[in-house]
């Protein structure tokens, strides 16, 4: 039976597989590893911090409840982003008093390809220091100011590293549309943030 330190050293794929075997310690460690990403992604998707913590917990609970339904552990990141995006869309529908449409079903766009998520190496020196609170606020303000479809696309691309194909699958759009949305989002952000580079 692995001990606490063993779980801390495991990769995401390994924790996913163990969680699917009802290893609750592995599930706890998996949640610990992804919760900050879920929070940060939602914080850039939402237009304000209202309900941010609630939605984060909602996503994590859905992850915990449905982890056994994930057929291919390799697709975990795309599956998690599917949950994040759907939870966000359901939240928007609730605000507009429309019924939620929750779908945990997710099919990996291409099962054979590797999903490469850039995870910064903790031991390497950062090229630049963390930016100031003010700068972070301005970046968040600029991203939150984007039209919704641009915002979702750029957040999934920049912060979750999804491919255009995966973003198209998650947002029910075409690859060409995703390409256009991302480039237009970048143009708008460039305009809004030119004083911060």
């Amino acid at each position: 039976m692995p001990n606490k330190n063993d779980y801390k050293k495991m990769k995401i794929d390994e924790l996913v597989v163990l969680s699917q075997q009802e290893d609750f310690s592995a599930l706890e460690e998996l949640i610990r590893k992804v919760q900050k990403d879920v929070f940060a992604t939602l914080s850039y998707m939402l237009k304000s911090n209202e309900n941010l913590y609630d939605l984060t917990q909602e996503v994590l609970l859905k992850l915990a409840r449905n982890i056994s339904n994930l057929h291919n552990p390799k697709c975990f990141q795309g599956w998690l982003n599917h949950i994040i995006t759907n939870t966000y869309y359901d939240y928007l529908r609730k605000l507009k008093n429309k019924p939620p449409v929750i779908s945990i079903e997710y099919s990996c766009p291409s099962q054979d390809s590797e999903i490469n998520i850039e995870i910064p190496d903790k031991h390497s020196k950062p090229i630049e220091k963390c930016i100031t609170n003010e700068c972070e606020r301005q970046v968040k303000k600029a991203i939150r100011g984007l039209p919704e479809v641009f915002r979702i696309a750029i957040v999934l691309r920049e912060f979750q590293g999804l491919s255009y194909e995966e973003i198209a699958s998650t947002t029910n759009s075409s690859i060409g549309t995703v390409k256009s949305r991302i480039s237009r989002a970048r143009m708008k952000l460039h305009e809004d943030l030119k004083n911060y580079t």
Binding site: Q35, Y44, C130
Partner: peptide, 29 residues
């Protein structure tokens, strides 16, 4: 440059979070 700026902002957002929901989520389950 903008890509780097956005990533720095994102990493700051992540690093500034102090909560840990792991135990409560598993307990709820």
């Amino acid at each position: 440059k903008f890509k780097k700026l956005m990533h720095n902002a994102y990493e700051k957002t992540k690093n500034d979070t102090k909560f840990d929901y792991s135990k409560s989520i598993v307990a709820t389950l």
